[in-house]
Design a protein around this nucleic acid. Structure first.
Lengths: 352, 352
DNA sequence: TTGAAAGCGCTAACAT
DNA sequence: ATGTTAGCGCTTTCAA
């Protein structure tokens, strides 16, 4: 085995050609595919390239091929653990395949979202993993379509498409079924006044969760009015205030489903401030299994889905597209599990 | 025939030149710097470019200029909230400055770390934000040095440098002072048997924290043997087992400093399993202020530093380098705050 | 199977 | 102030 002396980025393909005593284009062929190259030449070229520590210039190649080997990831907030886990897994899979992952965190700002798409397009990224953060994301979808890159949607509703067009592949999490299972579980414990605290129901995943929640209520013949859906910003303080109002009322819910860490935190604080014990006075269920849910006392029963799988599946779907050929899968639906812990119990007697 | 108004990436500078009735190079000059271009020509060119929806081809430009407008970020785990917050802030600042952020998450694998550096170098990223995850990172430093890009270190010890070389800029968090303050606080409450649970002390930040811990003990004249430092992997199960052993012993510590969410979680679980009340029987202090620390009952007193500031400062340091000229700051030291909550109290009588 | 030549779209040195 | 020209390093026809 030949020892690579030192990776020298400034060695050009021309120098390798000279060293191997063949033409520049032969080196290119030998090093890529290797099609239409005699075995001996292939070996000589490889040896020369190795000896000189040749590294192809990716910029020059990109200029020629119009592909960059880079993939963008557009999310509203990478520091949100729910996204961070996805990005992490996607990066891992993509880097295995030789792609670089570029991230853009847009803080739900539609302007920044479109700017990021434009930036991605201008840089000719080969593909994009995208989870628009704002409900009014039509313009983001348009920008994406105009960019003409391969797109994989991360747990968002797909945009309407024109006739004849194929929809973008998407990795979806079955939040509806998850919310249904969670609600059924609470109903099964005897709860009839269940509240859902969600940061917004305009789009997936919020909309799906609300639908699943209502599915389960309808199944149980429960009056939706007895089961309020509180839609609010995801700020903890706001959640806490809202939860206080909700739990302080006369006909307070006996169970509460909280979406996300911030809202869960706010709700738990509110319960504590009101002197409500969990699960004695109030059952609490978290949508999203975070450290807080797992480690709280009592440990919080939670809906969990596999973030790593979301990221990996998204990367896989995109890679299928990028490599072209072969059967193209266009949709992955991942399950949600209900992790039973100690935060849910039958409602207090007299309040049923 | 009327020209296309929408952004058309395939419009070349040559076509703009034709439309504006000037030469190709004049367009280049007019659109960049604008130096040595008459006002009228500048206006005409801008108008033509605008009308045609000209977008410069960044790939071609990169090939020429050997700069890419991209910055890499190398960390062991983006899904770790402590890194995610930094990445988020860095991305924000860098994207403002027109740079794209490429991430590589290397899971503490030295091989992947070097592969990522090689990849960054091969792609000619203009700079790198780096926090090597393994203690044996000499080869990572070498690879980085060989790559020849601008480097900013994220809260890690700087590598030794050859005489005459200028060290890489670094953003450091003052963990030593933080740990010292935390330990002093516990000592002040009357604790003398204080344990430090850390995921590793071979490098920054662990080493600094241990140093600060010992500083404070020495100040107080406490026998270090009474204050064990447990070094372990950051797995929760392991932390829990270790914490169980530690807390189950005869001379158990009356206070415990836990580094990171996983270890905090393990420690809290262990305390619960042993029937130790916090803070009645055991004071607990968290290094790193997470949702879990803030929302646990009782809320956990914690050391906190500003992740956003770390990311922003790192981006700023790098941008200074990339833009060149001007005074170059080479080091930022950010403070650590002690957030007082309810998890620390004087030790139980009889155990002091 | 191999080589010569033509660019990809841009910037920058040089000439005017 | 503007135009001409020569590449950046590579892939890819097209000939041989």
């Amino acid at each position: 085995m030949e020892e690579i002396v030192s990776r020298n980025a400034s060695v050009t393909i021309r120098e390798v050609a000279q060293a191997a005593g063949v033409s520049l284009s032969t080196v290119s062929r030998a090093l890529n595919g290797g099609k239409n190259v005699s075995a001996r030449v292939a070996r000589d070229v490889a040896a020369a390239a190795n000896r000189l520590g040749y590294q192809p210039d990716i910029l020059a190649r990109s200029l020629r091929t119009r592909t960059t080997g880079m993939v963008g990831c557009l999310v509203s907030d990478i520091s949100n653990p729910l996204y961070a886990g996805i990005v992490q897994a996607a990066e891992r899979r993509l880097s295995e395949a030789g792609y670089l992952l570029v991230v853009a965190s847009t803080a739900n700002d539609p302007g920044r979202e479109r700017a990021a798409v434009a930036e991605f397009a201008g840089r000719r990224l080969d593909g994009v993993l995208v989870a628009p953060g704002n409900a009014a994301n039509d313009r983001t979808w348009h920008a994406l379509a105009a960019a003409g890159t391969s797109v994989v949607i991360l747990d968002r509703d797909s945009p309407p498409i024109d006739a004849g067009e194929t929809p973008w592949p998407a990795v979806l999490v079955d939040h509806r079924e998850g919310a249904r299972a969670a609600t059924r579980y609470l109903v099964g414990l005897g709860h009839r006044r269940i509240a859902l605290l969600t940061p917004g129901g305009g789009m997936r995943p919020g909309r799906e969760r609300i639908a699943g929640f209502r599915d389960a209520l309808a199944e149980a013949g429960i009056d939706p009015a007895a089961a309020p859906v509180c839609i609010q910003e995801s700020s903890m303080d706001f959640a806490q205030g809202d939860a206080l109002a909700l739990l302080g009322g006369a006909e307070r819910p006996t169970a509460l489903i909280a979406l996300g860490t911030r809202i869960l935190a706010g709700a738990l604080r509110a319960a504590r401030d009101l002197g409500l014990s969990v699960p004695g006075d109030l059952s609490v269920l978290s949508v999203g299994d975070t450290d807080l849910a797992a480690m709280h006392t009592p440990a919080i029963t939670a809906l969990r889905w596999n973030l790593e799988e979301v990221g990996r599946a998204a990367a896989e779907l995109l890679l299928q597209r990028l490599r072209g050929g072969g059967p193209v899968q266009s949709r992955a639906l991942l399950p949600v599990d209900l992790v039973l812990r100690q935060s849910c119990a039958p409602p207090p007697v007299g309040l049923v």
